[in-house]
Design a protein around this nucleic acid. Structure first.
Length: 897
RNA sequence: GGGAGCAUAGCUCAGUUGGUUUAGAGCAUCUGCCUUACAAGCAGAGGGUCCGCGGUUCGAACCCGUGUGCUCCCA
């Protein structure tokens, strides 16, 4: 079969993915094996694959494929999150493009559009994961609004309410006055705006003047306050000054009058106020500012809500009732000026929040919301992480987690949205309410506590939906129907899951809450290990995001480089918990690696047709010719086998410790450097020469083993090469790892020596400008001739020597190379540049002498000798002896030049 | 404003209880090779004030303090 010049990934990738699916390799059912379970962090149902998903899912696939190849029952559960805010925003935008306003639709009509949208676009991201090679069990695909899942979310709400963990409370929210809806913080966009800062005088209680504003003094008859929002004056409840502000110390606890209304309010001291902003005096409007609300809570101030939900003034404002807020701002300024309340007006630049959806200025507004009290739920969840029942990788996130959990705040779970799990609360016209699964149950509950008997027609369900995270915190058990079908075989088998792979920015939103839900509803932790990925950034260090448009098109990259190369590129430099700067050159490196593998395959396939037959036998491959294996082959075979043993053990350790990036680097180097650059060159027969059958078969076997090691990282090309190397009866995807054998360190040491000598001799050739094709004669002066005889054949081949001789004396007119205590003399036709050789030797000598000096400095330090561990001292003494021997060798060589 | 983290070669990163040959890798760079698997390659080489300052220690990239710069989360 003719193999293409370069590796062409696209057809091969789709071929193998279909094959794996047809063989059902990714499907898992409970059995007697140990389970290894990962639940996918469910991407937004409307999402498309971006670099963050790529990183995250590649890691999960590596873990799950490794587990599968270790003989575990690997189960990776796919699914999507309904993502209430994001999805609803998209549906609203889609409708707006069609000219349909959400407000013109009934809830049912809107939800119908939303479901249509979900059916149409909801599966895209899951399809894209297949392109990446993700080995998910597709039969288990879940959605946070599947019927059973939906019911479980509602039941959890009811249950927590019954247990007293859920309550109603006021909260300051971002309000969109045009859409008449609350906004999440993410939906508020801050823009720099040119505003005005109004300095408004408030008359102080106790001024004796008839016209305090015009005739009085600041701080005696009036107090001046700076504000950018004069229309909120009508809702003022207090004036606040910094307690250390000398200007106002005499006013603490005194009163002033709200302009135009003459309502009396108190002057309170609080550190919150900055001394040097405005006048140092702050008006406090608890109903219309986040920070003022906090102050209001702290000092128990009256909350006067002066605004309606459409941004017009309410009855509580007393003035301008029904008029629009910005019109009122102009009017009130005019009226304040007329009444001499305005001291001055300054230009002022500030950040103002705008609605992402309607682009109107967001209004902070108080509203009744549903809350989960977190303290009790947090306690077991904190303990589990701190005592390592749940391991964080890297562990540094434990600090962050502890701090947050120890200072946990209650969780506001209601969202003013239609797409999501509708809150199961029912309200009677008099404001009484009940939490219940159905209207009938709700009605019965309300009526049981009320003299008035309402009918079904009287009560209405809460319009709001639950926070998306209130459903996804159940994910690790509800994907196995752990709540809807408690104690079923699946949840008992797969739960607790093994590893969670996620981004650190959702450690509180999601990870912490899953742990809480796990203990609350399963009395058990949801997972054993949590692997935190980094954030993927662009080359300039910016977080990749849709709004910046700096996220590359992942499918385009897969088309261009191949999925394996993309997986390689994203993994090669991404240690757990560290951000990764995405650079397309890493993908190129991945593609080049694919190509390297492909070319190694081509070389081996070329040998296949040239396997030497046994000298006597004809026609049968010489499997019994082991004794005839050429010398270079014997050492190479043994050495590479030991390297495989060594690296298999290293990689296993690294993967167990979640050092995936390092494991990949180690395998990469084993394949590129040890296998291709050293081993294959060592066993490579001369041009058009036959290859020894033992060497050939062992090489194929090693190659297969390498593919198996690499498979979790780069599944497609490894499967392809595995099948091209040999007729196979199985697939690499499910091939079980062999037991790891210990490595022979003596053989490895010989290999290192051989590499060192080859490199040094090649360097000497280069520096002396001996052409690659020019042969040399090599003389070795050593006390350990046996060590070199073992590797002599390879050495000759690799440094293009046509003879090797052992000598006990200096060889004249040669280039001398010193390695440890041994000397190598290169005899070549080339005229020797003795000055250059001498300079090189002197440089080596200087290095060794400096090194020796640093060792001697330590050893001559009495305190070091007294205090350091014996093995450390022994090591230093060995360094000393080695360095002295090297210096002696170099000095001897210098004499002869 | 509160909290957490990061700073090592031009770039991206390793450096696993402080001692492993005066700090390692990949990419990039330089030199020489179109050698017969691979120029998306081969063989070599150069390149570092381990962010600054102070401390602990016989010994610090690593531990402690402090300053600077950057990032993330929460408000």
């Amino acid at each position: 079969m003719e193999l293409s010049k370069n590796y062409l990934p696209t057809p091969i990738e789709s071929k193998w993915y279909e094959h794996w699916i047809s063989k059902n390799y990714f499907a898992s059912k409970p059995d007697e094996r140990e389970s290894y379970t990962i639940v996918i962090p469910p991407p937004n149902v409307t999402g498309v694959l971006h670099m963050g998903h790529c990183l995250n899912n590649t890691i999960q696939d590596i873990l799950i494929r490794r587990a599968r190849m270790q003989g575990k029952n690997a189960c990776w559960v796919p699914g999507t999150d309904h993502a209430s805010i994001a999805t609803e925003a998209k549906v609203v935008a889609m409708l707006r493009e069609k000219g349909i306003a959400k407000s013109s639709l009934s809830r049912e009509e809107f939800l119908q559009y939303a479901w249509e949208w979900k059916e149409k676009y909801g599966g895209i991201i899951l399809q894209q994961l297949r392109k990446m090679g993700c080995s998910l069990d597709w039969d288990r695909t879940s959605f946070t609004m599947d019927p059973d899942y939906y019911d479980s979310v509602i039941n959890v709400f009811i249950d927590l309410y019954k247990k007293g963990h859920i309550y109603r409370g006021k909260r300051m929210i971002n309000w969109d006055v045009r859409a008449k809806t609350a906004l999440s913080d993410e939906e508020v966009i801050y823009k720099e705006v040119q505003s005005k800062l109004y300095y408004v005088k408030y008359v102080l209680e106790g001024s004796t003047l008839a016209n305090p504003l015009t005739e009085g003094k600041n701080g005696v008859d009036f107090i001046t306050i700076a504000t950018v929002r004069p229309e909120t004056i009508l809702g003022d409840s207090a004036i606040c000054v910094n307690p250390n502000d000398e200007r106002y110390k005499h006013l603490h606890g005194k009163h002033a009058y709200v302009p135009l209304l003459n309502r009396k309010i108190q002057i309170i001291p609080d550190e919150y106020v900055t001394l040097d902003f405005g006048t140092g005096a702050l008006k406090v409007t608890p109903a219309h500012d986040m920070n003022d609300y906090q102050l209001g809570q702290k000092y128990n101030l009256e909350i006067i809500d002066t605004m309606n939900d459409d941004g017009t003034m309410s009855e509580a404002a007393q003035l301008y009732v029904g008029e629009e807020r910005f019109a009122v701002r102009k009017k009130i300024v005019t009226d304040l000026e007329a009444a001499n309340h305005i001291h001055k007006i300054e230009e002022y630049t500030n950040q103002v929040g705008f609605s992402e959806r309607t682009d109107v200025v967001v209004e902070p507004r108080l509203s009744l919301q549903w809350w989960v009290s977190m303290k009790e739920l947090a306690t077991p969840a904190l303990g589990a992480v701190m005592n390592d029942d749940i391991h964080f990788h890297p562990a540094k996130f434990k600090n962050l987690y502890r701090h947050w959990m120890e200072n946990i705040k209650d969780w506001c779970i209601s969202r003013q949205l239609w797409w999501g799990h509708r809150i199961p609360a029912w309200y009677a016209p008099d404001g009484s309410f009940a939490v219940a699964r159905t209207a009938e149950e709700g009605l019965a509950q309300i009526n049981s506590n009320s003299e008035k008997q309402w009918t079904l027609a009287d009560i209405r369900q809460d319009d709001d939906c639950l926070d998306t995270w209130f459903s996804s915190w159940l994910w690790p058990f509800e994907v196995f129907k752990g709540l809807s079908d408690p104690g079923n075989k699946e949840v008992s088998y797969y739960y607790p899951t093994s590893t969670l792979v996620t981004a650190p920015e959702i450690i509180f939103f999601w990870v912490a809450r899953m742990i809480m839900a796990g203990y609350e509803y399963k009395q058990e932790q949801p997972f054993r290990d949590v692997y935190f990925t980094g954030i993927v950034r662009d080359k300039q260090g910016r977080k990749m995001s849709k709004s910046l448009g700096n996220s590359p098109d992942l499918l385009g990259l897969i088309d261009q480089y191949g999925a394996d190369a993309v997986r390689f590129g994203i993994m090669i430099a991404s240690p757990a918990g560290n951000d990764i700067l995405f650079d397309e050159s890493a993908l190129e490196q991945g593609r080049n690696f694919n190509n390297k593998l492909w070319n190694a395959l081509k070389l081996v396939k070329m040998w296949e047709s040239r396997i030497a037959t046994n000298a006597s036998a004809s026609g049968t491959a010489g499997t019994t010719a082991a004794a005839k294996v050429p010398a270079e082959g014997q050492f190479a075979l043994n050495w590479f086998k030991q390297r495989l043993n060594q690296v298999s053990a290293e990689v296993d350790t690294m993967l167990t410790q979640f050092r995936l990036s390092e494991a990949l680097k180690t395998i990469y180097s084993l394949i590129w450097d040890d296998f291709c650059s050293w081993y294959l060159e060592w066993v490579k027969p001369g041009f058009e020469q036959p290859i020894d059958p033992v060497v050939y078969h062992k090489t194929v076997q090693y190659f297969e083993h390498l593919m198996q090691l690499l498979h979790p990282f780069m599944p497609f090309i490894t499967e392809e090469i595995y099948h091209l190397l040999n007729e196979q009866t199985d697939d690499l995807c499910v091939k079980q790892y062999p037991a790891i054998s210990p490595a022979d360190t003596d053989v490895l040491a010989s290999g290192e020596l051989l590499k060192q000598v080859i490199t040094a001799l090649r360097d000497a050739r280069n520096k002396n400008q001996i052409k690659p094709k020019e042969t040399i004669r090599l003389h070795i002066q050593t006390n350990d001739q046996a060590a070199y005889q073992l590797i002599e054949a390879i050495l000759m081949k690799q440094v293009n020597a046509d003879s090797v001789q052992y000598t006990t004396a200096t060889v004249a007119n040669t280039i001398v190379v010193n390695i440890e205590k041994d000397k190598f003399y290169i005899e070549a036709e080339k005229q020797l540049d003795t000055a250059a050789i001498k300079a090189g030797l002197l440089k080596d000598l200087a290095y060794e002498q400096n090194f020796l000096a640093s060792v001697m400095k330590k050893l001559s330090n009495e305190k070091f000798v007294q205090n350091a561990k014996p093995e450390v001292i022994a090591l230093e003494r060995k360094k000393q002896a080695d360095a002295e021997a090297r210096i002696q060798t170099i000095e001897e060589s210098l004499k002869t030049v």
